[in-house]
Design a protein around this nucleic acid. Structure first.
Lengths: 184, 184
DNA sequence: GGACACATGTAATACGTTACATGATTTT
DNA sequence: AAAATCATGTAACGTATTACATGTGTCC
């Protein structure tokens, strides 16, 4: 019984949540997601659902609308079991550990910029994160109104993360990173 | 002038920060990093530095210690330019957007667990994140003492993110996700 | 001097991305 | 009817991971 990758687990979860559903509706979720981590590219999704079906974690039923023919997926009992196992507990260190953050990665090398560039780096980042935060906050309120609690919690998590990031960026600016010339 | 990937930019930054340095010392950074995002596997690092050298972003000098022979890398002017370009500003949407979080991904499908499992999920996550937070906080204090401001800021960022996550997990538990049976 | 970690790689494998291809449906 | 979009794929490509291979230094 092999482990599921992040993407596999996520797709399995999406099938669980909206079964029966077409492969495209799964893909749509990734395309519409505000998180840019997965592109939801065709070359990722279509082969993946084939793999999941071969492993008997999902099964498909023929489905057609008008002249267009497709199929809809649903979870098998083994699929539900695999999903639960993937979800945890227990949680792995990769799940619990510090999530990666491209902005944090970059800040480590801020010293490679000129002082002026550093100031612009931080200002641009703060502006950009603020903008994203506003979008997520709106999303948050919408989901709360709609009463979909799972979606609301996810939005809350995203909001908290952006909020923490923004606070941290301001802290960084205050700590006068800009005051430490170290350009080489 | 092609764009740098995350890993390429990061490695370039590491070379910038510690030049002249051996490929292994680069790899060491990933192996020792508390963030589990990149494994620092040999098959990733060694071919990557070769690529960077072929693109004339870094250059190597022969170097030997005793009977063991190796090479040390340093940034070329083009490499510094590429690093600065990768760092930004301007920042891309992928850099600024909501960072991915395996825990958040999983929470979306919490309804697939039984109520008891959900409670354990949240408790286990809270415990695990707390443990990580303590480690990061200690790291934070150490770096502050050592006076390496760049490293301190990174640790602060990691701490803030874990802190936000923990707060969110408690919020989630309080919002009684556990009270919504939706198992299928 | 044998065991083990250090240091540097290569090969097989897996998988996500981009680009391309194709037919159905909707819009103009 | 032409154009755009929806929906479903396949192929080529790049690259990160694991596993394997090899030689050096250190420790008992």
């Amino acid at each position: 019984m092999r482990f599921l990758s992040e993407l596999e687990g996520c797709v399995l979860g999406l099938v669980w949540a909206r079964q029966p559903c077409t492969p495209y509706s799964i893909r749509r979720q990734f395309l519409d997601s505000p998180s840019p981590h997965w592109s939801g590219s065709t070359g990722a999704i279509y082969p993946l659902v084939v793999r999941l079906e071969r492993r008997r974690l999902i099964r498909s039923a023929a489905y057609s609308q008008g002249r267009r023919r497709s199929r809809v997926f649903s979870l098998t009992p083994a699929g539900l079991k695999a999903l639960r196992r993937w979800l945890g507990p227990p949680h792995s260190a990769e799940t619990l550990g510090v999530p990666s953050d491209p902005l944090r990665t970059r800040l480590e090398f801020l010293g490679a910029l000129s002082e002026q560039q550093r100031i612009r780096f931080l200002a641009d980042a703060e502006r950009g994160v603020s903008a994203h935060l506003r979008v997520v906050e709106q999303d948050c309120r919408r989901r709360q109104r709609e009463g979909d609690w799972a979606a609301y919690l996810i939005a809350l998590g995203a909001r908290g993360m952006l909020h923490a990031r923004l606070k941290w960026l301001r802290q960084s600016a205050n700590l006068q990173v800009a005051a430490r010339p170290r350009s080489r």
